[in-house]
Design a protein around this nucleic acid. Structure first.
Length: 687
DNA sequence: AGCACGCCGACT
DNA sequence: GTCGGCGTGCTC
């Protein structure tokens, strides 16, 4: 409180007086004893309504004075009305106190806090500030972001005290970081309290979890905290194990969904209370309130699970970038391959590349061979058995030395069709959507508009035979199993994901992302059978994604020096295939970035998608004052029957675009405005 | 979003 | 004359 402000009691009397003048109604809290010092609590009401994205002031009853601190959870009545001088109705809502104040700038009578749910301070000022920034960045409501950032309360977990914090560990040795030219220097910078920012292309092989752990350990050694976000429970568990091996128990927690809500909240509290300084976890851990954060790390940012599905759909990479800036931390974006966003961080000079020299890459990577369409066409055996003879040969040779990984497309991939003679994708004559075959032997139909295409002919070459490219990959894997009857077949996919397999010869059939780690030196070989399925997705990221998935599988294979071989069934001339063969993910990302820049695609521009009923979209558009350099793309009709509009601005205008859209949304909602419009910033799924 | 109040048509 | 249509407006 500043010295010129009158004491709280006087202020409150002032409120009372002005209110009485305005309404001449008695105070609803008349008779209730209020807190003496700061009788007003500013509350974030947990109601995800955009035009209510503001704080509300409540009176603090004296009995709640001590517990009603900023950051605690409260319950308040909201939406009540005054009837004959009494408050009536109003439903109970959860909320958080964000501030205690001497006075309110609200002229009306303040309702009292209904209840302080717990004295535990969970929405700390830095966490609130982060949530505010994320909400602004995504044109979303603060309450929505807070809901993502603060786990639900589990009373039992709150009762238990958190362990005492351990002293900072000694700085770790560089270990396998020595394989990277600037690796040891990066660790040293972390250990002495600097904030180095790097985009790290990890060498294939099993060392990256230990390397991530050492980066965290180095940060802890500087007396600061560290946070690493990984795309799934399996990779988080690997990082967790590496961290336990490096630092022992007690210096870090793993925040993942599979711990269960109570245990998860217990760990979150240990972080929030400052008892634990290091966190590894999945997406939701990006908000973990690590005290004195020194490093944020993100593993494999191309994985789609880093995009939060709940409103306002923040991406872990963006949240961690915001934290790195706001909390002035070091930054480590790691993966076996990179994304265009990562390449852009390097290109802009914000981060430095952290990559190994060519000789280290050659020492770590497997031999990658390709089988393209032309090879397959020449290969009579392939047509009979649906698998090129090179694949049989590689598998037979490798099974003598260890397990063989077979990467097959995910079940449920609807097979897309192509022209049998020219291989161009088969398109719908009415809407140019991709043709699909829903059932074998059935009539192909359009994946977008659903029209059957009984009399299809190719627009490119006039051919009239269709080719179902994906059908059979899984069956091919089954055939492989029958061909090697003495070799056990293990499968790992959506429902049953194997974390690891032994070093003995086996055929391991896995869908992308579910590949088990092979113990010992790794797989003797990998067959990547899903090239066509991966490369033909109608997605801006199809190439990046194909390379990411192939590299993930290939990194589990032993190095070329140890006889490791990868065979990918895809055209060797395609950019991602070449990048895999040469193991040059950095070059691939740089070329993708250049292409995006040329086409002014994200992330070289910033985009927002606005979708909903046509009238509502038009109304919002008329209401917003877009940045002057906004490009408007569309609107185009959506499958839901509405329209979608893309708005594109240069990189520097992203915040202005978000702010404009948010105020437009608020204005529309306030004017009782009709059908809702969905606004998404940097949507991940625009074709 | 709910849930009020508020000024114009068909019913007891 | 009243019941009630859902068109604006507020919620501490």
């Amino acid at each position: 409180m500043s010295p010129e402000e009158p004491p709280a009691a006087e202020q409150l009397a002032l409120i009372r007086a002005t209110t009485r003048k305005a309404k001449a109604k008695p105070r609803t809290w008349r008779g209730a004893q209020l807190a003496e010092g700061l009788p007003v609590a500013r509350v974030l009401v947990d109601k995800g309504l955009l035009h209510l994205d503001q704080f509300f002031d409540y009176a603090v009853p004296a009995a709640m004075d001590a517990d009603a601190q900023p950051g605690v959870r409260v319950r308040v009545r909201f939406g009540a009305r005054v009837v004959k001088g009494r408050r009536e109705g109003g439903t109970l809502h959860d909320g958080f106190i964000v501030e205690r104040r001497a006075d309110s700038d609200y002229a009306g009578p303040l309702a009292p806090l209904a209840q302080v749910l717990s004295a535990e301070v969970v929405l700390t000022p830095p966490l609130l500030s982060l949530c505010r920034h994320v909400a602004d960045r995504y044109a979303g409501a603060l309450a929505d972001v807070v809901q993502l950032a603060v786990p639900p309360r589990m009373a039992r977990a709150e009762k238990d005290p958190s362990p005492d914090p351990l002293p900072a560990p000694a700085a770790p040795e560089p270990g396998s970081w020595s394989r990277y030219a600037t690796g040891p220097a990066y660790l040293q910078a972390l250990a002495r309290g600097d904030t180095p920012r790097a985009v790290w292309l990890a060498l294939p092989g099993p060392h990256w979890p230990a390397e991530l752990a050492r980066a965290i350990g180095a940060t802890l050694a500087s007396g600061r905290g560290a946070l690493a976000v990984l795309p799934d429970g399996r990779s988080a568990a690997r990082a967790d194990a590496a961290l336990t091996e490096l630092l022992g128990e007690g210096r870090h927690v793993m925040l993942t969904a599979d711990a269960g809500p109570e245990e998860r909240y217990r760990r979150w509290l240990a972080v929030s209370r400052g008892a634990v300084r290091a966190v590894v976890g999945t997406r939701a851990a990006m908000f973990a309130p690590v005290a004195d954060l020194g490093l944020v790390a993100l593993w494999d940012d191309g994985d789609s699970s880093h995009a939060e599905p709940h409103a306002p759909q923040p991406h872990a990479r963006d949240v961690l970038l915001l934290r790195a800036a706001e909390e002035r931390t070091a930054f480590l974006l790691g993966g076996l391959t990179g994304t265009v966003e990562g390449a852009q961080l390097v290109d802009s000079g914000w981060a430095l590349p952290l990559a190994a020299a060519r000789d280290q890459v050659r020492a770590a990577a497997p031999l990658v061979r390709t089988v393209g369409d032309a090879d397959q066409a020449r290969d009579a055996a392939a047509r009979a058995a649906r698998l090129p003879s090179l694949a049989w040969q590689v598998t037979r040779d490798a099974l003598a030395h260890g397990p063989v990984l077979v990467q097959v497309p995910r079940r449920g991939y609807v097979p897309r069709l192509a022209c049998d003679s020219c291989r161009n994708p088969a398109r719908c004559a009415a809407c140019a959507g991709p043709l699909e075959l829903r059932e074998r032997g059935g009539t192909p139909s359009c994946g977008w508009c659903g029209r059957p295409a009984a009399d299809w002919h190719c627009q490119e070459c006039g051919g009239f035979r269709l080719r179902a490219q994906v059908v059979g990959a899984r069956r091919t894997a089954e055939e492989l199993g029958r061909a090697f009857p003495r070799v056990p077949v293990r499968t790992s996919g959506r429902d049953t994901v194997l974390p690891s397999v032994g070093a003995a010869p086996a055929l391991v059939i896995a869908t992308p992302g579910a590949e088990p780690v092979a113990e010992g030196p790794g797989y003797a070989a990998a067959l990547l059978l899903d090239g066509w399925a991966l490369l033909n997705r109608p997605d801006l990221r199809a190439g990046e994604e194909a390379l990411r998935r192939w590299a993930a599988a290939s990194a589990l294979v032993r190095s070329a020096g140890e006889g490791g071989t990868v065979l990918v069934l895809a055209e060797p001339t395609l950019r991602p295939v070449q990048a895999l063969v040469r193991w040059d993910p950095a070059g691939h990302a740089v070329r993708e970035l250049a292409e995006r820049a040329e086409l002014r695609f994200p992330p070289v521009s910033r985009m927002a998608s606005v979708s909903g009923p046509a009238a509502a979209v038009a109304e919002l558009l008329a209401l917003v004052r877009l940045p002057p350099d906004t490009d408007q793309l569309g609107p185009v009709p959506t499958p839901a029957g509405g329209e979608r509009l893309l708005l594109r601005v240069p990189p520097g205008s992203g915040a202005a675009l978000a702010a404009a859209l948010k105020s437009g949304q608020v204005a529309r909602a306030t004017r009782g405005g009709g059908d809702p419009v969905a606004v998404r910033l940097d949507p991940t799924d625009i074709g």
